[in-house]
């Protein structure tokens, strides 16, 4: 009798737990998990045409992808984009947070100013920067001409276009990350600073030994978000360069969009998508494994 009860109880609670989880499981499965699995399956099939339905091609899509120089160009561009924008955005965010966390007049105004780019839609941001970059009468050139410089086609040159769109991403993201750093800084009790000052720690030592370690959970969070954004945000590339000139600003997601929705090559696009997903998954995993161990959670 009691044996039967023991066996019954855990099963009932398990069922209840699954029932409670059901709504979110259904939503996640419908809009995330099932599409991922479907994409994975599609990536092993050819692109369906009007008179030729999709058929199994094995790794052909992946072979074609590896043989495509534009894929490699987009991948390398994307890695440069990530390696350039992430540290810059995080460093600027931290610097701005430290600055507006200190006692200074008009700091709430400054905080708002730093945060403004975050609330603007990326499309609007791209338009603002289009104006900055416009050769001849854009803001940058007007300043350059004022000081006797010459006009530069920032977005039209293969050498500067990628850097130009990276600057826009940093400008847009730094304010967002600053908010997280600022919130975390305000969580640090002021008497830690005082105790450290009495112990003889300089401002820099205090930052290195206390503030920075205490900010690690936020840094990890910000990094994960920054990595995802570096591979996900392409709105400004649509607006500003369309991936050009000559694929100089082509990145993975933009490439996927072009293959999938301009050239309607489903097979190639699904294979690319799987590569992007795997890349993001690996990066997130690496971050948690590498940084997670060092992070002190309060």
């Amino acid at each position: 009798m009691s044996f039967g009860l023991h066996r019954l109880m855990p099963r009932r609670t398990t069922v209840e737990a699954w029932l409670l989880l059901l709504p979110s499981v259904v939503l996640l499965a419908t809009f995330a998990h099932i599409p991922i699995v479907a994409t994975l399956i599609d990536s092993f099939y050819s692109t369906p045409r009007r008179n030729r339905p999709a058929h199994f091609v094995g790794l052909d899509n992946y072979r074609d992808m590896v043989a495509d120089p534009i894929f490699w160009k987009a991948l390398i561009n994307n890695l440069i984009y990530a390696a350039g924008t992430i540290p810059a955005a995080v460093a600027i965010a931290l610097a701005m947070a430290l600055f507006v966390d200190s006692r200074l007049p008009g700091r709430s105004l400054l905080r708002m100013a730093y945060f403004t780019p975050t609330v603007l839609p990326m499309i609007a941001v791209a338009n603002i920067w289009l104006f900055f970059y416009t050769p001849g009468y854009g803001l940058l050139d007007q300043i350059a001409i004022l000081f006797g410089g010459h006009t530069t086609n920032w977005l039209g040159s293969q050498h500067t276009a990628l850097a130009a769109v990276m600057v826009v991403a940093v400008w847009k993201e730094a304010g967002f990350f600053m908010i997280f750093y600022l919130a975390a800084l305000q969580q640090i009790p002021p008497d830690l600073r005082e105790a450290a000052a009495i112990e003889g720690a300089s401002r820099f030592t205090f930052f290195r030994r206390v503030t920075w370690p205490l900010l690690m959970p936020v840094t990890l969070f910000v990094l994960v978000n920054a990595v995802i954004n570096a591979f996900r945000t392409v709105d400004h590339i649509f607006m500003m360069t369309g991936g050009g000139p000559d694929n100089a600003t082509n990145v993975l997601l933009f490439h996927i969009y072009e293959i999938g929705f301009k050239f309607w090559d489903q097979g190639a696009a699904t294979a690319l998508t799987m590569v992007l997903l795997a890349l993001l998954g690996l990066l997130a995993l690496a971050q948690f494994l590498f940084a997670g161990r060092k992070v002190h959670y309060q």
């Binding site: 009790p189 008497d191 005082e194 030994r209 206390v210 370690p213 205490l214 002190h296 309060q298």
Partner: peptide
Amino acid sequence: VFQSYALFPH
């Protein structure tokens, strides 16, 4: 010695 002890939590 501070009222809150001001220990470094990490």
